[in-house]
C-alpha cells in the first residue's frame, strides 16, 4: 500500500513544490461527468487538486465509451460512482465529494458552495446556459470555466481558451453544435477538456 507521503513525494518531483501545495488545498467543482467532465476530473486529480466535487444524474452507457473516461466494466453504474472509483485509483488521497443528482439553478449554489472554481461540463446548450447564468448571478465570486463547441471532426486548433470576464472563461470552438454535425470524438473532446483543466490549474 502506498502511503500519502510516498505519493506526495512522487508527484512533487514532477511539479513545482509551492504550486503542488496550492493544488492540494484547491477545491474544484465539476458539473457534468460526461466526455468533458470525466476527462477534466482525471487531469485535475493527476495535477494534484486536493478536493474535487463531481455531480451528474446519469449512468454509464455503451455509447459513452467512445469519448468518456469510463470502461466497459462501468456500464450501468452511476457516472459519479464510476468516476470516483477511477479517480481514487489515480490518487487515493484526493478528497472527492460526489452528488448523484441533476444540477439545477436551485441546487447549484449548495452543491458547489465549497469550490473556488466551478467547471460547466454539460452537453445540452440550454443546460450550459442555465448553469453559467445561475453561477454568475448567485455566486459572482466563483471562477467559472465553460465548454462550448467541441463536436465534429474540425481542426484541433479551432478549440481555444477565451477569457470573457474576470471570472468567466469559455473553452471550445464556440460554433460546432452536435445537432448540426456527426460525431463527438475522444480526441476533440479531450482537447477541449484539456483546455478547461489547464485553465483551472
Amino acid at each position: 500500500m502506498i502511503t500519502e507521503a510516498e505519493f506526495a513525494e512522487a508527484v512533487d518531483s514532477r511539479s513545482d513544490r509551492p504550486i503542488y501545495g496550492l493544488m492540494k488545498r484547491a477545491s474544484v467543482g465539476i458539473a457534468g461527468c460526461g466526455g468533458l467532465g470525466s476527462n477534466i476530473a482525471a487531469a485535475l486529480v493527476r495535477s494534484g487538486v486536493g478536493h474535487l466535487t463531481i455531480a451528474d444524474f446519469d449512468t454509464v452507457e455503451l455509447s459513452n465509451i467512445n469519448r468518456q473516461l469510463y470502461t466497459l466494466s462501468h456500464i450501468g453504474k452511476a457516472k459519479v460512482d464510476a468516476l470516483s472509483e477511477i479517480l481514487s485509483q489515480i490518487d487515493p488521497f484526493c478528497d472527492i465529494t460526489a452528488h448523484n443528482t441533476r444540477i439545477t439553478a436551485e441546487n447549484c449554489a449548495e452543491i458547489f458552495s465549497d469550490c473556488g472554481i466551478i467547471i460547466e461540463a454539460f452537453d445540452l446548450p440550454d443546460q450550459k446556459a442555465m448553469l453559467v447564468n445561475a453561477v454568475m448571478e448567485q455566486m459572482p465570486e466563483k471562477y467559472l470555466i465553460s465548454g462550448n463547441g467541441m463536436a465534429g471532426y474540425g481542426s484541433a486548433n479551432a478549440i481555444v481558451t477565451r477569457k470573457i470576464t474576470d471570472k468567466l472563461t469559455v473553452c471550445g470552438d464556440g460554433i460546432t453544435d452536435i445537432a448540426d454535425v456527426t460525431g463527438l470524438t475522444a480526441a476533440r473532446v479531450m482537447i477541449c477538456a484539456g483546455h478547461m483543466a489547464s485553465r483551472a490549474v
Partner: peptide, 10 residues
C-alpha cells in the same frame, strides 16, 4: 456586451 451562444456537445 459579450454574448455567448451555447452549442451542444460535451
Amino acid at each position: 456586451v459579450e454574448i455567448i451562444g451555447f452549442v451542444g456537445g460535451g
